[in-house]
Design a protein around this nucleic acid. Structure first.
Lengths: 228, 228, 228, 228
DNA sequence: GATGAATGAGGGTTCATTCAT
DNA sequence: AATGAATGAACCCTCATTCAT
């Protein structure tokens, strides 16, 4: 039985994502991947040019989809406000990451490692992302929609908040049955991000500035559960 | 000149922490560790019973120190309020984690892997930690100092917030020169935690409940930098 | 040109037998085996699951063939006398051991070691062998063909005599050019075994009782036990 | 507590003999020996110049005692017949080997290995032994006490018979509780050797030539060679 | 495109030994 | 004489990859 070239690649990729996520890249052997995918070991080298090539394709495809979502909105958003565009970005990225949760988790974890390979792969995309986000922030400031702030810090904060929930230690989900996998997570988290824009980014009268440094359960989802 | 047993073990452990942190456990070879430590490879097996044993000792010693800090405060804190005890815990743990930053980072990352070994090592300590935190929260509630809330969620939120800054992807720090390593991080982060207690945990009049779900840059440290 | 799986395994096995026999299991390295077999080291693990697996297969296959020869005769021998069946067994086993002389020597030597592994491997086969031999001896006694004697001792004596010539120190053969390898060994040794059956096992008039101490049992100690 | 130099050496040697016997030379580590002896590992190198030196001393001391027993009788025996001297030799050697059973077993097993070291150690003693035995046999023939036969074969047969019972696979003893260790073994075995001398070596009338195939030589093959 | 035998590099570990105390 | 930390060589094995089919 001969499968499609594309089909076989997909099967292998899926198996790889699953194993890489739970065991890490180094901790996974090509034989484990081949076994889980139900294909011959040599096919991994054949289709991806080796284990490293497989990793590359996974990371690349993740960032590809990631950047594309920002890019599309950046170029076509018809929202009247910059904040509106940002909210679109937030929603699209949250959905994207949740849909590719294991891959996202794996990529983000691998990013915490000192791997030359991973660094090289990321740099292109991270540069692009930085460009888009910073441009948008600057646009918002120019339009007096956003408060004047160091753009760098805004960008990193934004990126941080978009990434952290997916870095969440696996064991927490398991122990407490709280998870970023179910869809109920997206809505409150998005709300929380909107709030962050309102309070910390946008140009708005803040009567009690002291509050700004305050509260917030990190995860809106949790907050949601025990009501307010 | 022969070194002390304890001394050599320390040198090896230091080298291992450094390498494990940047390359991961699986990505680090004993020969790299030995080379970095300037000792013979066999000494790792001699002193730690192998690479696995080295990992065990590192993780164990980290959690040992971690739990001890909670425990001491739990048993000897003379703060009149439970919140006061919690603040002590926060401070001690932040200092501890910052002082052992690479180790903390490494342990937390390794916790996101599906490693039987790591799971087994942690289970003891996590259970203890859970006990201490939950008991304290319950005490606070019984004393009407804290609002009534599901203790589980409080505990996990607290744990989360104490861990997240140290999971922070390395590259961010490097790119943006923001780091949890310098001491200026602790003070604002502690302040932020205090605020969380005031607004989300403690029994206090909240005039505008809507605000509670709001704001907060995840990292007070960052907020601090560009003023308020 | 890639060889058959079976073929390669045979080549490796042959090299292993040769080296194990002359240097012992512990004294032989997988690299020596691989070199002698003209294959890559990793193939040993690939085909046999490691050095230990190779040992297992060698010992198992030796005993397998050994037991099978007894079994076949046990079930299909059409000799009118039990002694006749025994003689068949003696002949088949002598031929078998001589054909697999190095393997036999190696296995028998390894049996003198306190190896858990070897013990476990043997136990199955030795139990089977014991069963076959004892049943045959008992049958001979029931038919009044054999003298009544403790079956245990008969069995061990028989086994002993079938094994000893192959345990013979290698150096003796070399020094004196006497060997169990050439075929002229089998005939007289078989004759000697027949004689042992006639004089010590079978029910026959013995005119000169003094002779009883002569025609062997290899171990006087044993003879002593069941009297003369 | 400092022990005598000699005492410590003995303790180590005893431990080594025990372990070498059950696990073989290669299968035993110096750490096992040191542990069993209750001394520091380095002492083995200190006292014996290493593991190899320890082996040398054990084998040497065994052969030393072995040869000395032959030598003494060779020079001082006042038996009127050569056969009488031989019987003395037999008795002394049986007792010696039984008293040093584990060592004897170990040495004889190690002799079946292709070890350059062992070969070199033995050669001296084996040459001496060969000289004594052959001279005695020749003397017996010259005195017409022994039949004329190839001396080589007589020697090797004799040596064979003196060695074989100690090569006996360990497991047999264990399974069947028959052992060469208890003293009751020596008497009958000696008797059997006497008989061998009477029937096969000495110049005596043999009324029933048929018996010639019976009283052994352990190896018919040998018997075959020098005719019947 | 798919297979599985074969490869060479490198992994962790164990070994007998030596060195400083 | 005795210790135990330290050493380098060599062990077996696993790895990702390639090759012939």
């Amino acid at each position: 039985m001969k499968a499609d070239k594309a089909e076989t690649k997909l099967i292998i990729a899926d198996a790889a994502i699953s194993l890489f996520t739970s065991q890490g890249y180094k901790g996974t052997t090509v034989r484990q991947i081949a076994k889980k995918a139900g294909v011959n070991v040599a096919l991994i080298s054949y289709h991806f040019g080796g284990k490293k090539g497989l990793l590359e394709e996974l990371i690349t495809s993740f960032f590809e989809g990631y950047i594309r979502r920002i890019e599309v909105i950046y170029h076509t958003s018809c929202s009247p406000t910059v904040k509106g565009s940002f909210i679109e970005v937030v929603e699209k990225l949250l959905i994207y990451q949740q849909k590719n949760l294991p891959l996202a988790r794996f990529v983000y974890r691998e990013m915490t490692l000192d791997s030359t390979l991973v660094r090289e792969l990321m740099s292109t995309y991270l540069t692009k992302e930085k460009y888009f986000l910073q441009t948008m922030f600057e646009k918002g400031m120019k339009k007096k929609e956003f408060r004047k702030q160091p753009v760098d810090f805004l960008t990193i904060q934004f990126k941080d908040m978009m990434m952290l929930p997916f870095l969440h230690p696996l064991y927490l989900s398991e122990v407490y049955q709280i998870t970023t996998e179910n869809e109920t997570f997206i809505k409150p988290y998005k709300k929380w991000m909107v709030n962050w824009f309102d309070k910390c980014v946008c140009q708005n009268e803040r009567k009690n500035p002291l509050l700004s440094a305050v509260q917030t359960p990190l995860f809106g989802a949790i907050q949601e559960k025990w009501g307010s």
